[in-house]
Design a protein around this nucleic acid. Structure first.
Length: 142
DNA sequence: CCATTCATAGCCT
DNA sequence: AGGCTATGAATGG
């Protein structure tokens, strides 16, 4: 089931199948099903409140590399950022592959891919850099 | 200092 | 298999 969540930064959608969260979209994706009675909504409530709670159950990563990347991303504390190059060295891969893998990440925000920026600037964001800017500004505010 | 080029690794068709 | 990146470092003007 696809749900809608109205965050202070704008509307977003996510798919919760009762067991795990499968997708997150940073726009209005499907029909407008508002529900606060699932782990994803509760996590989002906490997140936009500035507090950290344990993540809801997430769908298994498609590849082992994505699993590694997810692990690496979760190491980044809120409000901090890493560059693609730093993460690439950390995960023993190349910066280019990082961008590719991050762009393929189906779970933005939950997996904090917005905390990864280019060495000399913001870098890109699959759902629009506006979201990335807003998220980083929001996290810096705390 | 700005523009262009290339190496690089994982993803998609 | 080939092309495509949400890069980064090196090179040339």
């Amino acid at each position: 089931m696809i749900y809608r969540y109205n965050s202070p930064l704008g509307p977003l959608s996510y798919e919760w199948d009762g067991e795990v969260c499968r997708h997150v979209w940073l726009d209005i994706h499907g029909p407008e099903n508002i529900s606060n009675d699932n782990p994803v909504a509760r996590w989002l409530d906490a997140y936009f409140n500035g507090s950290c709670t344990s993540l809801p159950a997430l769908a298994e990563p498609a590849t082992s590399f994505q699993a590694t990347m997810r692990q690496g991303l979760l190491e980044i504390p809120a409000g901090e950022v890493r560059t693609y190059g730093e993460l690439a060295r950390l995960l023993h891969t190349s910066p280019r592959a990082m961008g590719q893998a991050l762009g393929a990440n189906p779970l933005p925000i939950l997996i904090p891919c917005h905390r990864v920026i280019a060495a000399d600037g913001l870098g890109g964001f699959a759902c629009g850099v506006e979201w990335k800017k807003k998220l980083l500004k929001f996290e810096r505010g705390f």
